[in-house]
Design a protein around this nucleic acid. Structure first.
Lengths: 140, 140
DNA sequence: CTATTAATGCAACAATGTTGCAACTAGTAT
DNA sequence: ATACTAGTTGCAACATTGTTGCATTAATAG
């Protein structure tokens, strides 16, 4: 029932006051379907069968969705952005796990608190980016 | 007295059982001089005045030094590797701070401990990559 | 339905990093 | 000191990821 995701996506986009275009809906629907953070390239592949979508458009839609906070992006040690839909359960700030074997990325809920990484004097904290690496359940 | 760093670099490389080439010595010396993690490009610029060094060689030397654990690399949200010499004071695993204004990167000593980001069942921890972001003392 | 403006597609570019291969050189043996 | 050999280097070409400018298209308001 993929339509469910498409209608949800459409609703989310409309609520942001943005134009509801097929590209945005389909891309957000893909991200809503995924349990894990996926790359630009993986999104492209999931859209292959259907009507084509330009590479650049995909980049721009992802940027737009990120700005609207409908999705968020993660960078990992392979220097590739990965994107994930912002389900309600995730607080805005959270950690990620990346499998060293299959490169899959999931979101973790907990974040370490500030006493664990105190900054030098004069430094001001703004945000934290934490990636835990290891093996996922499939690859263990 | 930059020679101090060059001789230290030379000694470190020799201890690893690797060939002592001028490229390796000069690159490692640059990294030993720096207090913070710097990019491939920044290293290139610091070597400009002296006898030229190929871009590719720089990449390969950095890879070699990383494998030998004489330096370590950090990825941050601009998708660019940054390199830093492994001074004794830093444990192999540690966190980094990146300034959101000037993009400078320094190493932090503390690491959050495992209870702060428990993994799902079946997942196996291997390493942790933590970047705290904010403003450095100069940019506050 | 039309007008307006945001969104798209295309082409070209930019930045970062990688690969193959011939030429060179540090360390070693003679 | 000289020659040998394997590890390094330089060059050219390529790969990947992401960005910019601009003309065209399409979503919404009226």
């Amino acid at each position: 029932m993929p339509n469910t995701f498409e209608t949800a996506a459409e609703k989310m986009i409309r609520q942001c006051g943005g134009r509801v275009t097929t590209g945005r809906v389909r891309i957000l629907a893909v991200l809503l379907t995924e349990q894990q953070a996926i790359t630009h390239r993986e999104i492209e592949q999931r859209l292959l069968g259907k009507q084509s979508l330009d590479r650049v458009t995909l980049y721009r839609v992802l940027e737009w969705l990120t700005n609207k906070q409908l999705i968020h992006k993660v960078v990992s040690d392979d220097r590739v952005w990965r994107f994930h839909a912002n389900h309600e359960l995730h607080s805005h700030q959270h950690a990620h796990f990346k499998c060293n074997s299959c490169a899959s990325v999931i979101c973790l809920d907990k974040l370490p608190n500030e006493r664990d990484w105190s900054l030098p004097v004069g430094y001001q904290f703004q945000e934290i980016e934490l990636t835990v690496k290891g093996l996922c359940a499939k690859c263990v």
